[in-house]
Design a protein around this nucleic acid. Structure first.
Length: 551
RNA sequence: GGUCGAUUCGUCUAAAGGUUAGGACUCAAGAUUUUCAUUCUUGCAAUAGGGGUUCGAUUCCCCUAUCGACUACCA
């Protein structure tokens, strides 16, 4: 509320599993907002649910944010560990709520003392029974200003009994005492003014004696206050608890420093109804998680990183899913996003995720890579295919693995420079680096079979004669001189001039050659192929095909 | 059921009372090209419905419908 305060926002995930892309978006918006304002982005781990803790989830969350280029200013150190002891940079440590356990009870009891909360001794079983009962009567049981009068709590029980129960039992809780018939007036940075009557609220549990831990609501308010959070940017699922949170700030007397709230809409499934879930990814074949995740049962969920997405593309795509800059710009660096971001251009309605658009973003980012970067990214995939990259200067042309030299363990050797040049040629044709092999495998390994339909279409006595002549023409082309462009142009002109002078159909001749070079009648330009595989290899492939294929 | 929120092309979205309702993705057609892809051009395609307010509503208000979230000693 105080405009003089330094902007401080937090991302406060619960380590109950991998961070879903919707969670990444929430973190991203927090980060962009903080950086735009020159403020701090804090990471806090909300692990107050001892039952649902998943090992590895916390590390996964931090790794995911780092992959996305989102680095917390506070809460996580340079090594990526959640800070446990206070320091100048991390004054509010520890940042895991489970380690802040001693802090919360006093605040819950302060509320009881001031009449804003009470002790409740109903067992979970008793409450469950009430809920079942209400369900039968087609209504919903709510612990509120009416029902609390007939339940076991410090409002109904004698003082000695209350004291005895607190001391001798462990299943009691502290519940918030909602005020009667009070209009809670709230303001949301994205949604505007909202009003709710307090009678529709239930008396939420704030603290549980069983594990001596607060629930989300208490921990959240106390920590946001203690950590001097100025804006809370979180998912829409929290909007229904906003009145409670407002009431809590009031009960604590912290209204003057209450953060401002912004509730983000949800990410929806690409088809059908409902919010995006892990199942949709499996069903429709796209990741819903930033990084691959293996759950404790050994089940693997794919990640954007492992699927070959650039983090910049993923972040860019996510940023525009529910926000837009008001201009027609679609491609943003993180710096540009920070510069352009503002909460009042965040969309109120849910955004349906479109995997096609995600692919498009990646294609755009792939094209922004330099040839050298692409070559480096491609090499691991080439290695998998048995292509050896050597820096031996005597290798100016790759040694090809044709059928006759594809003996057991035979390797194809090539140079970094060759790969770089190939990447330059094929980058426009790919969405992912993982598409590269499919596009240019024939630069490294000669085909030993040919697409049947294409053979039928292009291989006959007539084309046989043409190819015989083309063989001579190709062998007459002088070996590489001058630049790559010049040489490719020379090959191209030599071939096309000859084809034209004979009044042959360009498509027929070229596609027959392509069939022999590639294995099918689609692929790169013939001149490019001859240049990259080399004249001798091109001739060899023609010989091999003509020898193998019956006319 | 109750509370709260949302509703513009298939999808992401622009237009914050006056536009032939714009852009992007996808899809289709054409051009280029030796094929495929790229590229370029063009096209298809929307204000959920009904009432108001207003000279004028995508925009403001109300109702309905639909969708979503929440309704735990989970976050």
């Amino acid at each position: 509320m105080n405009p003089d305060r330094k902007t401080r926002v937090r991302f406060a995930p619960s380590p109950t599993g991998p961070l879903h892309m919707g969670g990444v978006r929430t973190a991203l918006y927090n980060y962009l907002y903080a950086k735009k304002a020159g403020g701090d982005f804090i990471l806090r781990i909300e692990d107050t649910d001892s039952q649902r803790f998943v090992p590895g989830a916390e590390k996964y969350i931090i790794d995911s944010l780092r992959w996305c280029g989102i680095y917390p200013d506070e809460g996580v150190d340079a090594l990526g560990n959640v800070v446990e002891t206070p320091s100048e940079r991390h004054p509010h440590a520890p940042y895991r709520q489970s380690q802040r356990k001693p802090i919360y009870r006093q605040y819950a009891e302060q509320l009881v003392r001031d009449g804003y909360a009470y002790y409740a001794f109903d067992s979970p079983q008793e409450l469950e029974a009430r809920r079942k009962e209400a369900e039968k009567a087609k209504s919903t049981f709510t612990y509120n200003h009416i029902t609390r009068r007939e339940l076991k709590n410090s409002l109904t029980l004698p003082q000695e009994e209350v004291k005895r129960l607190i001391e001798t039992t462990r299943t009691w809780t502290i519940r918030f005492k909602n005020p009667e018939n009070e209009t809670v007036k709230m303001d949301d940075l994205i949604r505007g003014h909202i009003e709710v009557n307090s009678d529709t609220l239930d008396d939420k549990v704030l603290w549980k004696a069983a594990d001596e831990l607060p629930t989300y609501h208490l921990a959240n308010i106390v920590d946001d206050h203690l950590m001097e959070i100025t804006e809370v940017i979180r998912g829409e699922e929290w909007l229904p608890s906003l009145p409670l949170h407002y009431l809590l700030y009031k009960a604590f007397g912290w209204e003057d420093t209450r953060p401002r709230f912004a509730h983000l809409s949800l990410l929806l499934k690409p088809d059908g109804k409902g919010k995006l879930s892990k199942r949709d990814g499996d069903r429709l074949g796209f990741p819903v998680f930033p990084l691959q995740w293996t759950n404790p049962e050994g089940e693997i969920s794919r990640g954007y990183r492992e699927d070959g997405y650039y983090p910049e593309a993923f972040v860019n795509m996510l940023a525009l899913l529910g926000w837009n800059p008001g201009t027609e710009q679609e491609l943003f660096t993180m710096e540009e996003l920070i510069e352009a971001f503002s909460l009042d251009r965040v969309i109120r309605s849910g955004a349906r995720f479109n995997p096609e658009k995600a692919r498009w973003f990646n294609q755009e980012y792939l094209r922004k890579q330099t040839d050298e970067q692409l070559a480096r990214q491609f090499i691991p995939l080439l290695t998998e295919k048995g292509i050896v990259v050597t820096d031996d200067p005597s290798f100016t042309v790759p040694r090809h693995s044709g059928p006759e030299n594809r003996s057991e363990g035979a390797k194809v050797e090539t140079t970094f420079g060759f790969i770089k040049a190939v990447c330059a040629l094929i980058k426009e044709r790919a969405h992912f680096v993982s598409d590269f092999w499919e596009i240019c495998h024939y630069f490294f390994i000669a085909p030993d079979s040919w697409n049947e339909a294409d053979v039928k279409k292009f291989w006959n006595p007539e084309t046989g004669k043409m190819i015989e002549k083309m063989y001579e023409i190709i062998s007459g082309i002088p070996t590489a001189e001058g630049s790559q462009e010049e040489h490719i142009r020379l090959i191209e002109e030599t071939l096309t001039d000859y084809i034209k002078s004979n009044e042959w159909k360009m498509g027929t001749v070229m596609n027959t050659l392509r069939l022999f070079f590639v294995g099918q009648s689609k692929g790169l330009g013939i001149a490019d192929i001859i240049y990259f595989i080399g004249k001798e290899e091109a001739l060899r492939r023609i010989r091999y095909a003509m020898h193998s294929l019956p006319v």
